[in-house]
């Protein structure tokens, strides 16, 4: 549905995008994940036809940018970051305006507005002036304007930034609902956002795609990054020395607990044989092993790991 092919973009001295390639399948919710400044917004602006890329192409539903930008824009709804809207218009007026700009025929405009007002639960504020709305309503209105021309593709740039937990929950539910009949590209710099709503994740860092997989697959692929929680009876110095001698272990934290038991967390590879070896090494050096719990790599860790590797 969306195919991004090798797009690059340079702003003065900064190479914002250095050849970004990925695709989004029909009726899929793709999470576009990356730290701030990774190039998420720039990529989305290029896909939505707001900015031209220096090179590369974007095709959406058979139309290609550059060249058919207007056709692409007709089929895409975009929710920019920060939900900027015309503050002096009424909610209905604003929706009708964008319906008209995006080619909804006059006689169907009112129905189109009614439908998104209902879908985004804006009924109670539809006569109000946009500038008076709360952050949550404005975000929903921004979503409504992106849907008013019934697009096939929805592009959402950080849709829950600045919302309170209840509003975040509402917006996520709405996105999941929309995902059943739309193709959605959603960017975020926070993982829970993506793992809560997306089928698949693309991770971007410093203008490059560094990983692309399903939410589950990505975690599995990086199983090597495993956090292991340990409780060991013995001296902290002795334990530290032991870990230092094991090349496959990296100490995250060690703190003395009750009754001479030291608690700690280490990072190591995901192979179970390594955990056996760690247990053996602890016992061999005369320490008492009380606990050894492998904890699955969370997306957050995967993300940290991926972007760190890239930075090194």
């Amino acid at each position: 549905m969306i195919a991004v092919e090798g797009i690059t973009k340079r702003f003065a001295a900064v190479q914002a995008l250095a050849g970004v390639t990925f695709r989004v399948d029909r009726h899929e919710i793709l999470g576009f994940l990356g730290p701030n400044g990774a190039g998420k917004t720039t990529t989305m602006r290029i896909i939505t036809g707001f900015l031209p890329a220096d090179s590369g192409t974007v095709s959406v539903d058979g139309f290609t940018i550059p060249g058919q930008s207007r056709h692409v824009r007709r089929g895409v709804g975009y929710v920019p970051e920060n939900a900027a809207l015309y503050r002096d218009m009424t909610v209905r007026g604003l929706l009708a305006y964008f319906a008209a700009l995006r080619g909804v025929p006059r006689r169907r405009r009112s129905a189109a507005v009614d439908s998104v007002v209902e879908r985004c639960v804006l009924g109670t504020v539809q006569g109000r002036v946009v500038g008076e709305l709360s952050r949550g309503f404005r975000q929903r209105l921004c979503l409504a304007q992106a849907l008013v021309h019934a697009p096939q593709v929805l592009v959402l740039d950080e849709p829950t930034v600045g919302l309170d937990p209840k509003q975040i929950h509402e917006v996520r539910n709405l996105i999941r609902e929309l995902g059943s009949d739309l193709t959605i590209l959603l960017s975020s710099h926070i993982l829970p956002e993506v793992s809560a709503t997306c089928d698949r994740v693309v991770i971007i860092h410093q203008g490059k795609i560094v990983a692309e997989d399903t939410t589950a697959g990505l975690a599995a692929r990086l199983e090597g990054v495993l956090t292991v929680r340990l409780s060991i009876r013995g001296g902290a110095d002795q334990i530290r020395a032991l870990f230092a001698s094991l090349p496959y272990v990296r100490v995250v934290s060690l703190r003395p607990g009750e009754a001479g038991v030291v608690r700690g967390e280490v990072r190591m590879g995901g192979d179970p044989a390594l955990r056996e070896e760690l247990a053996r090494a602890v016992l061999m050096s005369g320490l008492g092993l009380h606990e050894l719990t492998p904890e699955g790599a969370s997306l957050e860790e995967v993300f940290l790991e991926l972007t760190r590797e890239e930075a090194e």
Partner: peptide, 14 residues
């Protein structure tokens, strides 16, 4: 300045 340009120019207008 306000960011509404993104909504305007991502609409299919010339």
């Amino acid at each position: 300045r306000s960011g509404t340009a993104e909504l305007l120019f991502t609409s299919p207008v010339t």
